[in-house]
Design a protein around this nucleic acid. Sequence first.
DNA 1: CTACCGGAACTTTTT
DNA 2: GTTCCGGTAG
Length: 702
Amino acid sequence: MSGRAALASDLLLEGLNPSQAAAAAHGSGPLLIIAGAGTGKTATLAHRVAHLIASGTPPGRILLLTFTRRAAGEMLRRVESLLRAPHGAGANGSVPGATAQAPTKVWGGTFHAVGVRLLRLHGRSIGLDPGFTILDRYDSEDLMNLVRTELGLSSRERRFPQKGTCLDIYSRCTNTGDRLDSVLETAFPWCREHADDLRALFGGYVDRKAEQSVLDYDDILLFLRGLLRDPLAGPAVRARFDCVLVDEYQDTNAIQAEIVRLLRPDGTGITVVGDDAQSIYSFRAATVRNILDFPLEHPEATVVTLEQNYRSTAPLLEVSNRVIAQAGERYEKSLWSTKEEGAPPALVLCLDEDEQTDFVVETVLEQRESGLPLRRQAVLFRAGHHSLALELELDRRNIPYAKYGGLKFVEMAHVKDLVAFLRLAENPRDILAGTRVLLLLPGVGPARARELLSLATPSADEAGPGPFAGWSEQRPPTASAASWPALVALMNDLAGPDPGELSTQIHRIRSVYAPLLERAYDNAAARLRDLEQLEHLAAGFSDRTQFLSELTLDPPSYTGDYAGPPYLDEDYLILSTMHSAKGLEWDAVYVINAADGNIPSDMATGSPEEIDEELRLFYVALTRAKEWLYVCCPLRYYPVPRRPTDTHGYAQLTRFISPEVRPYFVERLARPGADGEATLGPGARMETGGVAEIRRRLKESW
DNA sequence: CTACCGGAACTTTTT
DNA sequence: GTTCCGGTAG
């Protein structure tokens, strides 16, 4: 590094605390940054990238792996502004060495997005067709179901696991590398008896993916690892990068860790950042061992711990620290804040879900009255459907909101339909996309679709007839005689040498699809508007291949608003699952349904490890708040009915707010009763009663 | 071979 | 409330 560059780098570190600066300016040895919640992790990482560029690393040789594309984008924006900022160094007021190459050249994105990019570039050298299309979760389930039906596993005396469960088991096997038997034993004991059938099923699933030239999420990681392991291709890919930075390292799985290892075998240039206390993806085979064992794997590694929290006030931090202290193994750290003053966290006890909804809506509006915009407030919950009642009320009151997690825009049936046209054109062997398109036609069922798809083959030479040329001679079922010629013409054009602009392609699909949509679904008008939205979305992409990849790897989240995602300049309330809230922060946070059964989820209380993960998830939710934190727990809730006979159960406050933690909250009733404060203690399940009865119980039972 | 109807079983988090 | 399976009518 030149003297001037060194000076510039020093200037880049302005505003960082000593630990952050040490991490940002660290040399080339392996580096582990343990970054507690709200400790300026993003800033540190951005400064580190800027520092690397300023000290001479070409941006294109830096690989920044993040958990979402949004995180990567945010990080690179900050890098850019750091390098642009007038630090007084350099002739033109910016950092030397930085101006020539834009930081946007940095390879940034999720493991999956980067994997796809590298596989399209280098895949051929390990025998992978670079024209592959990508299956999302639902496509993968459908393909699994197809094979399951073929093998006659659907109709059995002993009920065979559902497609989603099958895919979970498969995915767990591939991502952990464990044998099927041990996976079944530890994670899916109720499926043990089907071990042999599952093996056959998975074999078929793998074959079908290969035939169709499609990759599921797991394949992307698997093939990327294969690429890096390959004696010829591996070195070529490795040679691209000098530095690999991995964010949210606590949520990586064994394959991802190996990919990092293979990218930088000697450990130099590796930076991993994370917080073991926020590991919340073990259901996806992420293992906290990656971060805990990093110093063992790299004995020469430098470990920097960030403990000063810049996000939350001391009272909020206090309660979060107490909550996470209940967890098992972790790096000991205690977050501290200089923001001493602040409102204490509130524990809000509600009679039922309606009262909780009212409380949240009223408080959100009060906060807005006193100057806090909606978008700086967020409601967090364990499962996507926990926000349903709230969404209804927000709709009723015309309060705009955006929901993260749960059903996504691209997962809605009509959007998937339209995308299937594009996918089929892109990859005529993609049976799932093809079946989806053909089944839209009245009179066409699975059998006819299969027959038609066997006629469609990718044409070997450019000049030859298109892949769907054979369809022109097919006589359509009388019911869809009208739409058939248009569909054939459309597909031939889309798959032809000159399909036109992407948004034009979508426009053409819409005109063929609209009548089919109207036949197949109700509220066609709203759905057609969504498709218009999709066409607008596509305008930002020049390339169909890229559009399809990004759509499945990083789908835009769907909002509750019929008109599609809210415009960026509008104010709207944030609704999010706790998982999707990772890495984000808001001034006011409302955690709803903080009852045992919801958090921890009833589905995840099988083992102490699972419960620990739920605890960390709760911790993640609490630590999103900067100023105000409300934890709401409805005493009674109805959407439980296992049987139609019992209408509702009584909830207990989440076990994570234990008697030791509880005093750090200020307790209040959502709708203060006539006789003021209630005395609250641990609850018990009870039989139902009238409102008066419930109110009475409320006072005794907490 | 497709379209439709009735009964039975299930119901988290996501790249 | 939903999805999934098997049976039956056209």
